[in-house]
């Protein structure tokens, strides 16, 4: 069942210019994106800078103005214009990219983790403290450290504190926006393992946004590839990596370095082949504006943006 449903989402940012600084144009950061995140799965949204992946994630969190389209969580319409706003924000939480800047350096751990609890629940001081200690233990941080400040922790530990805050209200969906791209390899492994554990334990659904295809491949069940505000391909992880159909996906997959140096020449050749194919067949895959076509179902699970053929 779809926990999160994004339907034809459009987010356009105005460009101001001219003498009176009026809106003269707009950037179509997200331009008609539809996908579903199913209960219990990890859905990965991949793309390069400017692809609109982060904008999409923020829109689900309600941090961006939506130009057009709908977002549903369970059965509630998140961006309904009429009627009362349904507050599902405690069901959706976000983990951010940079563990060094996403925690307020002047706040103690207890205040950071308790913040969402204070917004939604009234707890006595003692109960709140107990709750925070439980949460910290759950993310593998000593419950004695509630009075410490963020700078007293390492990068990996900070990211865990961010997670403790995110799971404080028992959310159903966690949006992780590049949660490991600022971390060293070994710390990254720690955070990824831990996200998988917590997902299993709490029955969470993960909406994973990243540019690192290795991380995405390791974490996700299904993947959507974004390019210039549109999805170019969507499918199961195996389908995307073993049988990419769209030329952009192919190029992205070919660009991942191969960790076996013995395949170096082969891989380099393959990459230049794909590059050539990309240049030659660009207009087979993109319209005149260089944008992707609408997604078309090619198997039950696999969708590719291909043009209408007569």
């Amino acid at each position: 069942m779809a926990l999160l449903k994004v339907d034809d989402l459009k987010i356009h940012f105005p460009i101001h210019g001219g003498i009176l600084n009026r809106k003269i144009d707009e950037v179509k950061a997200v331009d008609g994106v539809s996908f579903e995140v199913r209960e219990g799965e990890t859905y990965g949204l991949v793309g390069e800078s400017g692809s609109g992946k982060t904008t999409t994630g923020k829109a689900v969190m309600g941090l961006n103005n939506i130009t057009d389209g709908d977002i549903y969580f369970e059965d509630s319409h998140l961006n309904a214009k009429k009627g009362k706003k349904i507050d599902v924000r405690n069901d959706i939480q976000m983990i951010f990219q940079d563990p060094y800047s996403s925690l307020n350096p002047r706040k103690r751990v207890i205040d950071i983790v308790a913040e969402p609890i204070r917004n939604y629940e009234k707890l006595s001081k003692d109960d709140e403290k107990k709750r925070v200690q439980e949460l910290l233990e759950r993310v593998g941080i000593s419950s004695d450290s509630i009075m410490k400040y963020p700078h007293e922790f390492s990068g990996g530990q900070r990211q865990r504190i961010g997670v403790a805050r995110a799971i404080a209200l028992n959310p159903k969906l966690i949006i992780a926006d590049e949660p490991v791209s600022a971390l060293d390899v070994s710390v990254q492994a720690q955070v990824l393992n831990f996200l998988q554990d917590i997902q299993k334990e709490m029955d969470l659904t993960l909406f994973f946004i990243a540019h690192d295809l290795g991380v995405i491949k390791h974490m996700c069940d299904r993947i959507g590839i974004m390019y210039q505000g549109r999805l170019v391909e969507e499918g199961l992880t195996e389908e995307i990596f073993n049988n990419p159909q769209h030329i952009y996906t192919k190029r992205l997959v070919a660009a991942i370095p191969d960790v076996d140096p013995r395949n170096r020449e082969k891989h380099r050749e393959f990459r230049s082949q794909i590059k050539e194919e990309y240049q030659q067949s660009f207009y087979d895959y993109f319209n005149e504006e260089g944008l992707a076509f609408n997604l078309k179902q090619i198997t039950d699970t696999h969708k590719v943006a291909l043009p209408e053929r007569g």
């Binding site: 390492s154 710390v187 990254q188 492994a189 990824l192 393992n193 290795g214 491949k217 390791h218 974490m219």
Partner: peptide, 24 residues
């Protein structure tokens, strides 16, 4: 060896990535 087995989505990595204990 630890470093190699902590990179995701490679032949070195298992379902569980290897985590080096402690910090630098």
């Amino acid at each position: 060896r630890s470093l190699l087995s902590s990179i995701p989505a490679t032949d070195y990595a298992q379902d569980r990535l290897h985590v080096i204990q402690g910090i630098v």
